[in-house]
């Protein structure tokens, strides 16, 4: 699923990464706890989170995640956008709640992929 399709499904605004909309995303994970992302995520390319601080971008970068979808209408700070630019990570923001965002993407075929155990 392309990032443009994710943005459409989540009715999301693209905060950064207009030039990455054709990037293919094959799996996703969701968490507000970055330690859990670091512990359990394996090869997910999309992180759905309600947490909105620079560590979300840094965590995504450590995990080679290509796109972050912020939920509950969270807007990235200029500092977050700056780090996302340096790292080449797209940021979307959606008014959807986490549960709805996950459900909508799952229903359209974006699944978790492989997870660490």
């Amino acid at each position: 699923m392309k990032i443009s399709e994710i943005a459409r499904i989540l009715e999301a605004k693209v905060c950064y990464g207009e030039d990455m909309l054709d990037t293919e995303i094959r799996s996703a994970c969701a968490s507000d706890m970055m330690s859990d992302v670091l512990a359990f995520v394996k090869d997910q390319a999309l992180l759905i989170s309600g947490l909105c601080n620079p560590q979300v971008i840094r965590t995504a970068d450590m995990m080679d995640i290509k796109c972050i979808a912020l939920v509950r209408g969270k807007m990235p700070t200029p500092e977050m956008i700056e780090i996302a630019k340096q790292k080449g990570i797209a940021i979307l923001t959606s008014e959807f709640r986490m549960y709805v965002a996950c459900g909508a993407l799952y229903a359209e075929g974006l699944h978790p992929g492989e997870l660490r155990v």
Partner: peptide, 14 residues
């Protein structure tokens, strides 16, 4: 710290 997304008790174990 938890509000910042950490402090889940996974740091040292990770």
């Amino acid at each position: 710290i938890r509000d910042l997304g950490f402090g889940a008790g996974m740091g040292l174990p990770n």
